[in-house]
């Protein structure tokens, strides 16, 4: 019984550590984002959300990558409204889990 308790505690802390290291990235494919100066607003408006850790803008691929803080998420509707409010059209929203917060290999 004591062994089972110890294993359960160890498993609990392992899962906690894994959850803390897991990072969620939301990739938003857009249209119309051709100008760096015009895309500045995206990084500002999305980046100032509490749940967002970092925002990367890729003009070549018309892609906005939103990296979430640990155990945080952002609703598709909220994210869509922010991007549409900046004047771009949304093609798709894809979510992926990364191995660590710093990793972009998901």
């Amino acid at each position: 019984m004591k062994k089972i308790m110890l294993m359960a505690i160890a498993l609990f802390f392992s899962l906690q550590a894994f959850a803390a290291e897991t990072g969620r990235i939301v990739d938003v494919k857009v249209q119309g984002m051709v100008c760096d100066f015009c895309a500045q607003g995206i990084q500002k408006t999305v980046g100032k959300r509490d749940e967002v850790k970092n925002v990367k803008v890729d003009l070549d691929n018309q892609l906005i990558s939103v990296q979430m803080k640990p155990n945080k998420n952002i609703d598709d509707k909220v994210l869509s409204d922010l991007i549409l409010g900046n004047g771009f059209s949304i093609i798709s929203i894809n979510r992926k889990e990364c191995k660590t917060q710093e990793s972009t290999e998901c």
């Binding site: 249209q31 119309g32 051709v34 018309q62 004047g87 771009f88 059209s89």
Partner: peptide, 12 residues
């Protein structure tokens, strides 16, 4: 006022 906007694939 923005009267019209066309977001294309690589243009606006």
């Amino acid at each position: 006022n923005l009267l019209w906007r066309e977001n294309g694939d690589g243009s606006q």
